Amino acid sequence: MEHQAIEDQLHGSSTWMKRFERYLPELVYGSIDGIVTTFAVVAGSAGAELSISVVLILGLANLIADGLSMSIGSYLSKKSEQDNYKKHLKIEAWEIENLPDAERKEIEDIFREKGFDGKELEMVVNRITSNKKVWLDTMMKDELGLTLESKSPFKAGLSTLVSFVIAGAIPLIVYILSYSGNTSLDPFILSSVVTALAFVLIGYIKTYVTQAGLIRSIAETLLLGAAAAAAAYFLGDYLRGIIT
Rank of each mutant, 00 (worst) to 15 (best):
S150A: 10
T210I: 08
I215P: 00
P171I: 03
A93M: 13
L185I: 14
E143N: 11
M17C: 06
S13N: 08
S217Y: 09
H88K: 14
F116D: 06
Q211Y: 11
N131I: 06
S14C: 05
K87H: 09
A219N: 06
L177D: 08
L60A: 15
N62R: 01
Y204S: 11
P25C: 09
A156L: 03
L214T: 15
E149P: 08
K86Q: 14
I218N: 07
T160L: 03
Q82R: 10
I72Q: 09
K87I: 08
F164Y: 14
Y175I: 08
V162C: 13
G12I: 07
E106S: 15
A198L: 04
G67A: 08
D66G: 04
W16D: 09
E120Q: 13
T195C: 06
A167P: 09
N62S: 01
F39W: 10
R216P: 00
M1N: 04
K87C: 03
H11Y: 12
K90M: 14
A156T: 14
G118A: 12
F164P: 10
L99K: 12
G115D: 06
K18F: 00
E97T: 13
F234K: 03
A48M: 10
V55F: 01
N126M: 11
L177T: 14
A156W: 03
M1Y: 04
K18A: 08
G44H: 03
E149Y: 01
S184G: 12
D109K: 13
I243G: 06
E122S: 12
N182C: 00
S69Y: 01
L58V: 14
D237C: 01
K206C: 03
D33W: 08
V194P: 05
E120L: 13
G145T: 07
F111Q: 01
K155H: 07
I64P: 09
I218M: 09
V36H: 08
L27N: 09
E2A: 15
V36K: 09
A198H: 03
L148F: 12
F116Q: 09
G59F: 02
R22W: 02
A48R: 05
T147M: 09
V42C: 03
K132C: 04
I72T: 10
L239E: 13
K141G: 01
E26F: 07
L158W: 09
W135Y: 12
R127V: 10
T183E: 11
L60F: 15
L10G: 02
A167E: 10
E122F: 03
L76I: 15
A219E: 02
H88D: 11
